[in-house]
Nucleic acid binder design. Sequence first.
DNA 1: CACCGAAAAATTTGATCATATTCTGTCGCC
DNA 2: GGCGACAGAATATGATCAAATTTTTCGGTG
Lengths: 227, 227
Amino acid sequence: MIKKQATNPAQADTKQPVHEQVYQTLRSMILFGELAPGQAVTIQGLTDSLGAGMTPVREAIRRLMSEGALMFQGNRRISVPVLTQEDLRQVIFVRKSIEAELARRAAHNMTPAAAEALEQLDLALDQAIETGDVGGYLRSNYDFHALLYTIADAPILTEMADRLWLRFGPSLRVVCGRFGTQNLPDRHKEMLDALRAKDAEGVARAMEQDVEQGMEQMLGVLSETEA
Amino acid sequence: MIKKQATNPAQADTKQPVHEQVYQTLRSMILFGELAPGQAVTIQGLTDSLGAGMTPVREAIRRLMSEGALMFQGNRRISVPVLTQEDLRQVIFVRKSIEAELARRAAHNMTPAAAEALEQLDLALDQAIETGDVGGYLRSNYDFHALLYTIADAPILTEMADRLWLRFGPSLRVVCGRFGTQNLPDRHKEMLDALRAKDAEGVARAMEQDVEQGMEQMLGVLSETEA
DNA sequence: CACCGAAAAATTTGATCATATTCTGTCGCC
DNA sequence: GGCGACAGAATATGATCAAATTTTTCGGTG
């Protein structure tokens, strides 16, 4: 890794320990589909490509394994897990429950400024859908939900929800890559209206539908892919 | 570390990598209250007391931090988190949802043999309650739920439920230590009946109540403890 | 003369790396 | 086709560097 001389440029980089940087990098790669389901990952490969030592890479990998983003493939072999239909069903169940609750909490804490910020993200998302920018869609969609989590102000629920994204992220990428960004669900407009009205149950319902539609679509694709 | 000559004694020990052993050890200590909420933990202290190298200990700690069982206390100081009432409320919400679903799934997969095994664990639990054996109660209670998870056969849900135990484990120990094992909730008998009848919704209801009662009791104690 | 506060040194602890050791999977040879 | 050597990768250790806390000391003041 390049020696940073504790100056301004990218202070956030040097501020954080290497294992944290590696973790964030890997996490993004998995979340936004730069690593495909089933793809193998080696420690040495990472130390080379990221230019970091073994220890930090090791710690990052353990952490991601613990989060279900990476999987121990038996003989000391590590790979991105392939989501089965059954896996996805479990994810759907929890995600509906948790995201609905986060939405309720977000409704309670809603401010005009927060609503504005959410709307901005939703606009970016619409644009990504129109232009068929899969990467942009994935990122904007995640950002929208992530901001909602922040507003909800519930660290434990947020952490659990975040973890679920890591599980279906790679497969979501595959689905979008195959079927484009057109008929993807977007209940965000309804959610925004309900959020502004502080209608907690309304937001929760919209969120459940948003999650359900997106996930069910994945389920459909998985059922084709799984022989 | 002592050189192990790949022989019989404790083959399971040598079979697993050191970082896994360290993880399991620490996990048990946290789950069953050998580490109190707020207690500090140092890497070097662990390398000494467990007789392991730095890297394995490091990996185990990262993993536990990622699971919410340990917490990064600002200035590179690691400790067992203190559960706030707000934290516990979030835990309660998710736990009710997930454990109920696991109970439903367990009901579907129930066999006479499984019911028998559960009953055995419940008997051990009753005995622990009578004799006021706090450690035994914590272990049996966990074992009962853990076996139910196994029967439910839903890896992702199980992993999430397990993680929640790590969050409230230390505080549960404190509560039990203070108020004994007497008026602890035990809906396990109802659950067993419903499980044998394969009444999924009945099990789910009993489980929700079991969780709710136990957790609400903790909430009450926390409200006294928090100044 | 005793006490308080601040600054500096020392110890403790965490982060990273380079290296040795062990295990697994594979390729060649019998 | 089976057995053994080799290669590659992962596990684990110890050393080294950096940061932070704690302790110690010194100067000033009541």
